[in-house]
Every structure is written in structure tokens, then in C-alpha cells.
């Protein structure tokens, strides 16, 4: 699904990502941990294609296509979707209109794929039903993000992705600024997105759902709350622009809770030394 090789990224002349390698397979969900400022959001923004994130070296291959230099909309149309942490307000643009645009993109990208377009068509049309799943039906007439609370922003982001139906979902801290009640709604929405929009009640285990749907995820989390809802296969810690310490996400979470990221740093330094020692050979 996604193959990142030796990715170096600069923001305003400062190198933030310093050689990131990452491979996410179809149906796999990857969790990104790391302290503030380590480069997690930068990685997501770079994958999505934001202009201020300058790739100086390395490559991004998505669904077999090199998108390292591709414009944002091409990536979106190819099936890459992102939930924003702090999205801008767009005055005069009702949520419903934006959802219609997302649905159009979603249909275009899914019809290119092998999925049954028929079912997705009828579902995409019924935006009200979609909105009800995240308790958002009352907001469809409101301007996008205008005066939304933290939880409302997150629900709106989830809803847009539900209309867009991406194959690789990038979630930037889906739990930040969200109360527990909203967390459940958002968590369930994330699970559905990764599980390929399964119907309510169809209680399959999240892992099997995700595997079946072939949807992949890349999730940034600090608190790990999202792990209560989605099945995460692998995780890694981002530290100073590099990925280290691959392990099962819950293990990483527990480790960070107990020892903090300082411990990661030590481990990371050890790894580096090992590499350095190995180099002459």
C-alpha cells in the first residue's frame, strides 16, 4: 500500500525528517508514537503533499505509484485520506457541499479499484445517513468548521473521510481535544473506515474486518485511546525525525507510559551505535 524510502523533509530550510523508512501493507494499521516535535505530523503532511513540506531526498510510493512529487489532489484521488488536527474554517461552504465533493472523489477512486461500486454509490448518496453515524446530521447546513468544538471538528473530519472512502487513512491525533463520549463515536468511525464501512451489528473482529477490506491506516497517537477501537498491527516511535523501536503498539504504549520517551532515546542511541559499529565491516 505504502512504501517510504529514506525520506528527508525540510520545513523552511530546517531538516525535520532525516531518513524515514516505512512499509505499510494492505489491510495493515500502523501506529506512530513519539514526543512533541519529533516529526510525526510532518510525516503525515508530507505524505499528503502539503507545499511547505519539501522533500529533499527519498521517495513515497503509494499503491505502486511514485507520488513523491504528485500534487495533493492526485494523492487524494488515488485513495489517500487524512483527518486534520486543526483544520481551517471555510466560510460560506456548508458541510453538506464539502461532503458531496468528497463523495465524488471517493466514487472516482473506488470505481478505479476492484471494489463493488454499486453498493458504495447508493451509500455515498445518503449523506444524512452517513452523518447520523457520527451524530452530525444537525451540522450539515453549517459552514465547515465554523465555531466547531474539538469533538465536532473530529466528527466532521471522520465524516468527510467516510464520504471520501480512502484506501490509506492518515489520522493525526484523533483523540486530541475530544471528550470520552465523542471518543467512542470517533473511535468507532475510525474502526469502520479501516474496516471498510461495515454495517452496524456485523460484529466481526476488527482485525479480520481490516484485513478483508484491504484498507490501511497510519495513526499518530499520544494517549493511545484510539487503540481501544482499532486493531493496530505495528507501531514505531518517531524520534528526532527518524523511526525506531518497532514493536506491537500496545507494548510501545505501555513502555512509554512507564519509562517515557527518554528510554526510547537511549534505545535509539544504542541502535545508532550498533549501526555505526557495523559500518566499517
Amino acid at each position: 500500500m505504502l512504501q517510504i524510502k529514506d525520506l528527508h523533509v525540510e520545513i523552511a530550510g530546517n531538516e525535520v525528517l532525516k531518513g524515514v523508512n516505512l512499509h505499510i501493507k494492505p489491510g495493515e494499521t500502523f501506529i506512530l508514537f513519539g514526543p512533541n516535535g519529533s516529526g510525526k505530523t510532518t510525516l503525515l503532511m508530507t505524505l499528503m503533499g502539503f507545499a511547505d513540506y519539501k522533500i529533499t531526498k527519498g521517495s513515497i510510493v503509494f499503491k505502486g505509484r511514485d507520488v513523491t512529487r504528485a500534487p495533493m489532489y492526485e494523492r487524494a484521488r488515488l485513495g489517500l485520506g487524512m483527518s486534520f488536527q486543526r483544520p481551517p474554517t471555510i466560510h460560506g461552504l456548508p458541510v453538506r457541499t464539502l461532503l458531496e465533493m468528497c463523495a465524488k472523489v471517493g466514487q472516482a477512486s473506488s470505481s478505479a479499484g476492484a471494489q463493488a461500486a454499486e453498493a458504495s454509490d447508493s451509500e455515498a448518496m445518503d449523506l444524512d445517513a452517513l452523518a447520523r453515524r457520527v451524530n452530525f446530521e444537525r451540522f450539515l447546513g453549517r459552514d465547515v468548521n465554523a465555531g466547531f468544538s474539538g469533538g465536532e471538528i473530529k466528527r466532521s473530519e471522520m465524516l468527510q473521510l467516510m464520504a471520501q472512502k480512502p484506501d490509506l487513512l492518515l489520522f493525526d491525533e484523533p483523540e486530541s481535544g475530544v471528550d470520552l463520549e465523542n471518543m467512542a463515536v470517533i473511535g468507532q468511525a475510525a474502526r469502520r473506515l479501516l474496516g471498510g464501512e461495515c454495517e452496524d451489528g456485523a460484529e466481526d473482529c476488527p482485525k479480520r474486518q481490516t484485513m478483508k477490506s484491504g484498507k490501511s491506516g497510519l495513526i499518530i497517537t499520544h494517549t493511545g485511546y484510539i487503540l481501544d477501537y482499532v486493531n493496530a498491527d505495528r507501531g514505531q516511535v518517531m524520534y528526532e525525525g527518524q523511526l525506531c523501536c518497532e514493536a506491537r503498539p500496545l507494548e510501545i504504549l505501555e513502555h512509554v507510559r512507564k519509562f517515557g520517551y527518554q528510554e526510547c532515546l537511549r534505545c535509539f542511541m544504542d541502535e545508532k551505535q550498533t549501526i555505526a559499529l557495523n559500518l566499517p565491516r
Binding site: M72, L98, V105, Q160
Partner: peptide, 25 residues
Amino acid sequence: EIEYLMARGLDEGEATSTIVRGFLN
């Protein structure tokens, strides 16, 4: 704002006119 809409699959022209339309709405 332009990039937000581009991340939803609109090209730059579409994103710009959507924002302008909203602005004048």
C-alpha cells in the same frame, strides 16, 4: 484553506473557486 480542500481531492482551481464562492455566499 486551499490545501485543506485539495486534500479532499479538489485541484487548485476547484479549491480556489469553492473558497471564493463561499466567501461571496
